[in-house]
Amino acid sequence: MISLWRDMNRRGQVVLVVAVLAMLLAPVVATRYLLSVLTLILYFVYVGQAWNLMMGYAGQLSLGHALYVGLGGYVAAGLWVHFGIGPWLGVIPAVAIAAAFGAFIGWLAFRFGIEGVYFSLLTIAFAEFTRIGFDHIGPLGGAGGLFIPYQESRLGEWWNLRGGQLFFYYLAFVLAGAAVLLTAWLARSRLGHQWMAIREDETAARALGIDVFRAKMKAVLISSAMTAVGGVFYAFYYNNLFPAQVFEMSRSIELILGPIVGGLGTVFGPVIGAFVLTPLGELLIAVTDKAGLNAPGAKAIFFGLVLMIIIYLVPGGVWPWLSRRLGLVRRRS
């Protein structure tokens, strides 16, 4: 974490401090709508960072991360709705179950040499199977969805995540900040270097004594566990979960666009990516609503176009380009 700070030059440090202060003070001036957009951005910073650890650093392309969001959300929401177990406690089994799924997928793939696109297919398959499975779990609402009921008496019980918009904004801020710090720390760690070695060349990594299986398992475990926490947030923020929505492949894609656009395998890539893409998405919704044309898939096409343009203009992602242009990182001597 200290190294994250040390790697930035004076200008980078100033920009970071100003950005963090602006985010902290945003609720003073922001409208409720703007605050909800900022909350969404921070949510995508958080889950994008979780995915970035696995893909950007360890080089394992998961296209089914919605699985962990959904599992985390459903477990915590189910425990709350049926047993009154609060999410601070519920997050533990939520994380455990999502990590168990992650571990199983990882074990299956890494033990039996399912690599590259086949690994990605496996992650999609698991998310899809789980979606179909959840359609039939009665106690969790099945295909009809699980709702966290609105209870007047519980309003303001922020310790049960029953707070308002302001509360969720700061919660998302803490989550996103923690994810950034964790990534910065991991990127500098022994494990982080093992991941990067595997990402770059698995054969060479193995020849240098790296237990590739173990390192990859750690990547899936950490990533799935982190993502599940995002799922708990999601469930209690939106108060409803539908299998067809949370486990949808498009949700997995949505979550990975930020890091890709922002810069894979960088600490700030997922941050910049979320700040670029989420407002763009909101803007498109506003524009199409105003124009009265609500063509299905319009948003997807728009996102696709933006993605193509950005990848064409800055192939390494926005962050590496931006930090170089603005001179935010220290040139290593």
């Binding site: 270097h193 990067m196 054969t203 060479a204 020849a207 237990d211």
Partner: peptide, 28 residues
């Protein structure tokens, strides 16, 4: 034994066709 286990015992190898980690710095 697996290649990583052999390396951990103290046998390191280079590849005829070199395999650096291309995106990482020389030091890393």
């Amino acid at each position: 034994l697996t290649p990583d286990a052999v390396c951990r015992r103290g046998v390191a190898r280079t590849f005829q066709i070199v395999r650096p980690f291309p995106a990482l710095t020389v030091e890393d």
